[in-house]
């Protein structure tokens, strides 16, 4: 990533055609390839995990069951009994983002969740689904939420736009959070990795000093593992919260 002495930290997020001439012809970049890999990994994990279908689960099956129950409890605890309806959606969302975040941590791979186009598409999907569910469950009472109950009517011209903006900010903050965390993490990796290369050019003292950024990068891997699961969790739980508000009467 570091070409010469300049640090090109954002080059890792650039999209390139992959798979040679075929990829060039169909404009296939790393991003959809890694999305397919992420989906395949999650599906393979669930399929091979649940293949034995044993009453007393083995390790892989136990892992698959824990994942299932974790997201199911998340959905049902947050949304309520209607959560079972949305459970498949939330499960898919959580594991798609989690697999994307973790795939990106593998060296030379690509993090598709580091593109705002991807995260905003996911967020707008959640947003549109929550609006559709709101309109279906609450009907036109849904629009009453934009005027806080008990507030003076004279303040409505101020309060209603703020409430609407607060509502519209949901997909923005949802997408920016995931995107910014992923970009920040990978930029930090790249910066510290290029420090190592720069220090290596300084001779012996540089070799000694270069241990510092390497240690920091190892610690950052641990941090990014936490951030990856945390961001997927936050995305999933916010989807649950929005859907709970949608199904609340």
């Amino acid at each position: 990533m570091a070409s010469g002495s300049s640090i090109d930290v954002l080059g890792q997020f650039e999209l390139h055609p992959v798979l040679g001439g075929l990829g060039e012809a169909v404009r296939l970049s790393q991003s959809p390839v890694y999305m397919v890999i992420a989906c395949a990994l999650v599906l393979a994990f669930l399929f091979y995990g649940m293949k034995p279908a044993a009453v007393v689960p083995g390790r892989l099956q136990a892992a698959a069951e824990i994942c299932y129950e974790f997201v199911r409890n998340l959905a049902v605890d947050t949304i309520g009994p209607e959560g079972t309806t949305f459970f498949p959606f939330i499960f898919a969302l959580f594991f798609f983002i989690l697999a994307g975040n973790y795939l990106g941590l593998i060296p030379h791979s690509f993090t598709f969740t580091s593109h705002i186009a991807v995260t905003f598409a996911l967020a707008i999907m959640v947003f549109v689904i929550s609006i559709i569910v709101s309109l279906k469950v609450q009907g036109f009472k849904f629009f009453a939420h934009f005027m806080p109950a008990g507030a003076p009517v004279a303040l409505a011209p101020l309060l209603v736009p703020i409430e609407i903006l607060s509502f519209l900010s949901r997909p923005v903050s949802l997408s920016i959070r995931l995107f910014a965390n992923m970009v920040a993490g990978h930029v930090m990796f790249d910066i510290f990795a290029s420090f190592v290369i720069m220090l290596a050019g300084l001779g012996f003292i540089g070799d000694v000093l270069a241990v510092g950024p390497i240690v920091i990068n190892i610690a950052l891997i641990g941090l990014e593992l936490l951030v990856g699961v945390l961001q997927a969790y936050v995305f999933a739980i916010l989807t649950c919260i929005y859907l709970r508000e949608a199904v609340a009467h």
Binding site: S173, L238, C240
Partner: peptide
Amino acid sequence: EDKSILALAARAGSEMLGGLIAGVLI
């Protein structure tokens, strides 16, 4: 819903930024 304090901390900053960015974009 906020079982994890970490999840709460991860949300706070971007919630504020999200409102501002939505306003600026609109």
